[in-house]
């Protein structure tokens, strides 16, 4: 696991180096700033997505959850005038609830994860339209959200000046979203590697039957995994709403693709039970670096779509290769040695 992370970090460094040499203005403070502000929420989504994948599932609905939570925030703030400090926990709760519902469908109705979450993708997106404040009160379409608790998420820290480095080099300003991402990373990483729940996640994904026989409440573990994915989607939604000071019905559309790609690139195995938080987070920034680099090199956005797809394919291909090797290693050194 550690070596895979190291390989990814190396690949990330190589990518940065390559673009720094080839793309004009890539090696600059503004690129770092763009990367931090534009991909921190992607990293959060990817870390969330890792949980369903760790328990051998997948969540296609996280983009729709982002949209739903965004619209809930919009309505609460602009229509119901709920104060921001109440909106934050409500939004997180809504995201976790939507995620947990996915888990319930998977566990209790025994639906295939991808089909269950594809269905909830439609349902959550539909719900977003249904509660859309933009349609209920058309006058609000152009009204920005001004609640300081919400817009405060879109804050930048001039870390360079605090540290006194600005006098030497041009330092990027660090967005609060990046700090949030670090906090989410820290919490989830600790949850995953240092708690009983984390062990239960790995056990459930690694060998469902063994986990059940060991007395682990696998159903609860799976539902919680999906709830965490929803919670992360809600955090991402808050960051995005703060950025745009509004929410649209299409907020987050297609984000699941990027999140899955980042998670798989980050070494979270689709076979379940393998992966951690560092990989998905770095995977998201790797995707971001590639996209920003390509843009600076003048590659049109549509080509980037192709490249994103190709990277996803390459990542699952690599994942598959690793698991085939694992199986070989598992079956090779057994008996017949005598």
């Amino acid at each position: 696991m550690r070596s895979a992370s190291a390989a990814l970090a190396l690949f990330f460094a190589a990518t940065i180096l390559l673009f720094s040499l080839s793309a004009p203005r890539f090696a600059s403070a503004s690129t770092v700033e763009n990367l931090m502000s534009g991909f921190s929420f992607v990293a959060i989504l990817a870390m969330g997505q890792a949980f369903p994948i760790l328990v051998r599932g997948i969540d296609l609905s996280i983009g729709a959850i982002v949209g739903l939570v965004g619209m809930i925030v919009f309505d609460l703030s602009l229509i119901l005038h709920v104060p921001g400090y109440l909106i934050l926990p409500l939004a997180l709760f809504a995201g976790a609830l939507a995620g947990a519902l996915n888990g319930v469908l998977v566990v209790h109705l025994r639906l295939q994860p991808f089909i269950a979450t594809l269905a909830t993708l439609a349902a959550y997106r539909g719900l977003t339209y249904a509660i859309s404040g933009r349609q209920l009160v058309p006058g609000l379409t152009t009204t920005p959200i001004r609640d300081p608790w919400l817009t405060g998420i879109e804050t930048y820290f001039d870390v360079g000046r605090w540290l006194g480095l600005s006098r030497l080099v041009n330092m990027p300003w660090v967005p609060l979203s990046f700090v949030i991402m670090l906090a989410v990373f820290a919490v989830l990483q600790v949850l995953l590697t240092s708690t009983r729940f984390g062990r239960d996640i790995y056990a459930t994904g690694g060998n469902h039957e063994a986990a059940r026989l060991a007395g682990i409440r696998v159903n609860g573990v799976i539902i919680t995994a999906y709830a965490l994915a929803g919670l992360c989607a809600a955090i991402a939604a808050l960051i995005m709403v703060a950025r745009f000071t509004t929410a649209t019905e299409a907020l987050g559309a297609g984000m699941e693709l990027t999140a899955i790609a980042a998670a798989v690139i980050g070494g979270v195995s689709l076979a379940g039970g393998v992966g951690a938080m560092f990989g998905p987070a770095l995977g998201a920034f790797l995707l971001g670096a590639i996209l920003i680099g390509l843009t600076l090199q003048g590659v049109p956005q549509f080509v980037q779509q192709i490249i994103t797809g190709a990277i996803l394919l390459a990542a699952v291909g690599y994942d598959r290769l690793l698991s085939v090797r694992r199986q070989r290693r598992l079956s090779a050194p057994s008996t017949a040695a005598t």
Partner: peptide, 17 residues
């Protein structure tokens, strides 16, 4: 259209269940 989307999602889930 929004209710249509929700209805569709619900119907699929019901059918699969």
């Amino acid at each position: 259209i929004d209710i249509q989307l929700i209805a569709k999602g619900a119907i699929i889930v019901a059918a699969l269940a």
